[in-house]
Design a protein around this nucleic acid. Structure first.
Length: 281
DNA sequence: ACACTGCCCTGCGAGC
DNA sequence: TGCTCGCAGGGCAGTG
């Protein structure tokens, strides 16, 4: 499940290989809606001959900039993969699109569950995302006071608010659970009930879990790979995600971890380290 | 504006 | 062993 650290790892691994290359053709598989509503012919007309000038990340979106000020937006959703391979190499399993480059390499998009998309924009793809995405949690404009303002008066569970991309961009289920554990905050606490010190701890925990996950080149459970097909290592560093369902012990206190479904997402936490009642803290 | 639900999609692991 | 069933969940549309 690619979240900010995984998407950033894909970006970093692709950047030196694809930037500066020119698109010579496209190859689409049977799943035409990977391109959204535009036709394959339209996509080919828009992309062939374009040079890739950069690759950026915004939240969980990858943005490929082209030399005519247009761009491509890629979202991997749950099981998407974006990988570079030699033209002669066999296609990826579940491959839906290949962008053929002038250096003998193909940029390939695969997705087992067909949730991911490759969207071609006439202009800067970042503009389309501007209204949908909050600040980047690793940038300096994501401050504790900003987040405190965002949470003020909110009654929804903090876990759900962390997943709202309009409030902060790039957090998914794994890193939301990990950050709440580090900050010792129960996932069901109403967002507006967090004290200033708790928001401080949460903001700092988000930075910690995301930063170290990038250092580990992402979390690989099953399908996630970087742009060269390499798995990440962060799955060995997780404190709670996936462990609550199995009732495994908390690494901090030994209490069996628990899980709850919040906003239709499984939330793993330590009932001892992350109490729901503020009075008992 | 906010909170919440249902939808998309399919391989895989659990259970029988 | 072979089968069925439900889980995994990001973003978006739709409802109240």
């Amino acid at each position: 499940m690619p979240e900010l650290p995984e998407v950033e790892t894909v970006r970093r691994s692709l950047e030196p290989i694809v930037v500066g290359r020119t698109i010579i053709d496209l190859d689409v598989g049977s799943f035409a809606s990977v391109l959204g509503t535009i036709s394959f012919d339209h996509a080919r007309a828009a992309l062939v001959g374009r040079r890739l000038t950069g690759i950026r990340r915004r939240g969980k979106f990858l943005l490929i900039d082209l030399d005519d000020e247009s761009g491509i937006e890629v979202h991997l959703r749950m099981t998407g993969q974006l990988e570079v391979a030699d033209r002669g190499a066999p296609p990826l399993r579940f491959q839906h699109l290949a962008i053929l480059l002038n250096n003998g390499l193909d940029l390939r998009f695969a997705d087992q569950r067909k949730f991911g998309r490759v969207i071609i924009h006439d202009g800067d793809p970042a503009l389309a995302l501007k209204s949908k995405l909050g600040p980047e949690p690793l940038e300096t404009d994501f401050t504790s006071s900003y987040f405190q303002g965002v949470l003020r008066g909110r009654t929804a569970a903090i876990k759900s608010l962390l997943l709202d991309q309009r409030l902060v961009a790039g957090i998914g289920n794994i890193y939301a659970d990990e950050a709440l554990f580090l900050a010792r905050i129960h996932p069901q606490r109403p967002g507006g009930s967090l004290a200033a010190v708790e928001v401080d701890a949460l903001v700092s925990a988000m930075r910690d879990v995301l930063g170290s996950a990038i250092d580990q080149r992402g979390t690989t459970f099953r399908s996630y790979r970087d742009g060269t097909g390499q798995a990440g290592e962060n799955q060995h560093r997780l404190n709670v995600y996936g462990r609550g369902r199995r009732g495994e012990p908390c690494f901090r206190c030994g209490t069996p971890l628990a899980y709850l479904v919040i906003g239709q997402r499984t939330s793993h936490f330590c009932p001892e380290c992350q109490p729901l009642e503020i009075e008992s803290r």
